[in-house]
C-alpha cells in the first residue's frame, strides 16, 4: 500500500508519496526548483547542488540538495529564500564559467540570476553532472563509463581498451548530456566566452521577477527539466 506524507514547500501544503524526493515532489506540483544533474527515475547523486533548499526543523534551517532529500511527514521546505537564491546564483556562476559553451548551462545561469561572471572562463567540455555515467550504469547496464580520478583530476572515462568493448550503443549518454544535446549558437572561441542569454526565451527577464511556479518555460526544454522528461 502506498503511504503518503504531508509536506510544506514554499508555503504550499502538498501531499507526496513516501520515498520520493523533495525535488520530484516540487516538480510534480509545478514548483520550479532549478536543477541540472537530476533525471527522473535515475538514482540522484546531488552533484550540481543547484537544487539546494532550506529545510526548516525545530526552528533551525539546514541547506541541503532537494534531489537527495526524501520527503518526511511535516517537513517544511523553502526553495526561494534570499540566502538560497544567492548561493544558487553563485553555483550557477561557477558552472557557466567552467562551460560557457552549453546552452543548457547558459540558460540555467540566467535563470538563477547570474548577470556577470567574475571568474575567468574555462571553456571545458564537461561539468561532471554524471548524467551519462548514471544512464550508462542504470538504464543501459553497460558500465562503460565512470568517474575516474578525484578532485580536480576527476573526469568521465571508460575502462582501458576500446570503448566499444563495453558500450551498448544506446546513445543515452549523448541524449542526456547538457553539453552535447544543446550546443549553443557558438561554440564560442577561446578567449571570447561570455555570458550570453541572448536566446529568444523568457530568460532575458529579471530573475527576481521569475515565477516560482513552472510555466513550461523554454529553459526547461533546453536543459531537459524533469518536468518535460516526466511527461
Amino acid at each position: 500500500m502506498l503511504q503518503y506524507v504531508n509536506v510544506m514547500i514554499d508555503g504550499a501544503p502538498v501531499r507526496a508519496e513516501k520515498g520520493t524526493s523533495v525535488l520530484d515532489t516540487a516538480i510534480h506540483y509545478g514548483i520550479c526548483i532549478p536543477h541540472l544533474c537530476h533525471i527522473p527515475g535515475i538514482h540522484d547523486m546531488g552533484a550540481c547542488r543547484l537544487c539546494i533548499v532550506e529545510e526548516v526543523k525545530n526552528g533551525r534551517s539546514k541547506v541541503t540538495a532537494s534531489c537527495t532529500l526524501l520527503v518526511e511527514d511535516g517537513m517544511v521546505i523553502k526553495s526561494n529564500t534570499d540566502k538560497i537564491l544567492k548561493m544558487r546564483k553563485n553555483i550557477a556562476e561557477l558552472l557557466v564559467a567552467q562551460a560557457p559553451n552549453s546552452k543548457a548551462i547558459q540558460d540555467v545561469a540566467v535563470r538563477c540570476g547570474v548577470k556577470d561572471v567574475r571568474y575567468p572562463f574555462r571553456n571545458e567540455n564537461c561539468v561532471l553532472c554524471g548524467r551519462c555515467v548514471r544512464i550508462c550504469k542504470e538504464r543501459a547496464k553497460a558500465n562503460a563509463l565512470g568517474f575516474i580520478g578525484r578532485g580536480k583530476d576527476r573526469h568521465v572515462d571508460h575502462p582501458p581498451g576500446r570503448l566499444m568493448d563495453y558500450c551498448k550503443n544506446c546513445n543515452g549518454c549523448i541524449m542526456f548530456c547538457p553539453m552535447s544535446v544543446t550546443p549553443c549558437g557558438g561554440p564560442m572561441k577561446k578567449g571570447q566566452e561570455r555570458l550570453c542569454g541572448q536566446c529568444d526565451s523568457q530568460l532575458n527577464a529579471d530573475a527576481q521577477k521569475m515565477p516560482g511556479v513552472c510555466v513550461w518555460c523554454e529553459l526547461g526544454k533546453g536543459f531537459q527539466c524533469s518536468r518535460y522528461l516526466a511527461v
Binding site: N143, G146, F147, I148, G149, R150, D153, P159, P160, Y166
Partner: peptide, 12 residues
C-alpha cells in the same frame, strides 16, 4: 566488480 569500478578505485 565491473572493470570500470576497479579502475575508479585504482585512480581514486
Amino acid at each position: 566488480v565491473p572493470l570500470i569500478d576497479v579502475y575508479r578505485v585504482a585512480h581514486f
